[in-house]
């Protein structure tokens, strides 16, 4: 293979230079908020934003975030974890079972129902969340954790991924063989198919976990009691008070830093389980 070293070097500089600049762009707000989270309210405005001040007070800031309003911030973090964890787990079970059913059984109306579910992927959240408030309000569910948890159990995209993955990774021969051995449909699904679909299940779980954790409109519409807020809604509440009381600015910054660091660390830890190729492969189906 003949290669011109000069041209190769130039290309290498351009490619890696562009990657370094992009990396700095993605890191900038995260680095800024972590540094700003260590500053006193006055240093926030008087010291350079991308370096620590001479009088860091990270511990004091963290203490204030976790003691403000009787420690409500920890409640918000736990609520987010509860909504995202339980919601994503339930959504994964429903989506994997349904996707498997769509993939492995032929029944009347199958393609129509699947198209309806697929259409759900294209629907903007506003047309679901606002009317849902009026449907759930007479039932007395609005304002409770259920009003956020129950709608979070529905992941049309999860069903879509599960169907494609079941088609690709659960061979019909395996199901037939188990059936000849006398296993029932439910047992085949529970002991054989679910294991084969594990990569899809993990992807659906992570996808829905992030979707629920990042959701803002649904809790904003449904919840009115601070004790039920997820961290997104809680930080927005503090953010809306910064104009009345400037001290809230530091609370918002340190609180944001905590929630960003927690979730980014979590994300990096699980990133290798995230099978984006499943969603990419989806287009080939």
């Amino acid at each position: 293979m003949v290669r011109q070293p000069a041209a190769g070097l130039g290309a290498r500089i351009v490619v890696n230079g562009a990657l370094v600049i992009s990396a700095l762009y993605f890191l900038l707000p995260i680095v800024w908020v972590v540094i700003a989270g260590t500053k006193s309210p006055s240093d926030l405005y008087s010291s350079f934003g991308l370096w620590f001040s001479d009088t860091p007070q990270a511990i004091e800031n963290l203490g204030r975030v976790f003691t403000q309003d009787g420690g409500i911030f920890s409640v918000w973090l736990l609520n987010s974890l509860l909504y995202a964890g339980v919601g994503a787990l339930g959504a994964t079970v429903l989506a994997i079972a349904c996707g498997y059913g769509f993939a492995k059984y032929v029944f009347r109306g199958r393609e129509f129902l699947f198209s309806a579910v697929l259409g759900g992927v294209l629907v903007p959240a506003t047309i679901v969340a606002l009317p849902l408030y009026f449907l759930l309000n007479p039932l007395g569910i609005t304002g409770t954790a259920w009003s956020v948890l129950l709608p979070s159990l529905v992941s049309p995209f999860g069903v879509y991924l599960a169907r494609i993955h079941a088609n690709a990774s659960v061979p019909d021969e395996v199901i037939e063989a188990a059936r000849i051995d006398g296993a029932g449909d439910v047992r085949i699904f529970g002991s054989i198919s679910v294991r084969m679909m594990m990569p899809a299940a993990i992807t659906v779980f992570l996808f829905q976990f992030v979707a629920i954790w990042n959701n803002f409109l649904l809790p904003l519409v449904m919840l009115d009691n601070q004790k039920t807020f997820p961290v997104t809604l809680g930080l927005t509440l503090w953010n809306s008070q910064t104009q009345r009381d400037p001290l809230f600015t530091q609370l918002v910054i340190t609180g944001s830093a905590v929630s960003v660091v927690v979730l980014v660390a979590l994300m990096i830890a699980v990133q290798r389980f995230w099978r984006a190729d499943l969603s990419a492969g989806a287009t080939k189906g």
């Binding site: 993605f26 908020v33 927005t236 918002v252 944001s256 929630s259 960003v260 980014v264 979590l266 994300m267």
Partner: peptide, 24 residues
């Protein structure tokens, strides 16, 4: 390393991203 760095903001909720960029 770049994949990890570029993927990280996806974990930041839109409202918190807006709060951070608001300061910037």
């Amino acid at each position: 390393a770049f994949r990890v760095i570029a993927f990280a903001p996806y974990a930041v909720p839109g409202v918190i991203a807006a709060i951070l960029w608001g300061f910037l």
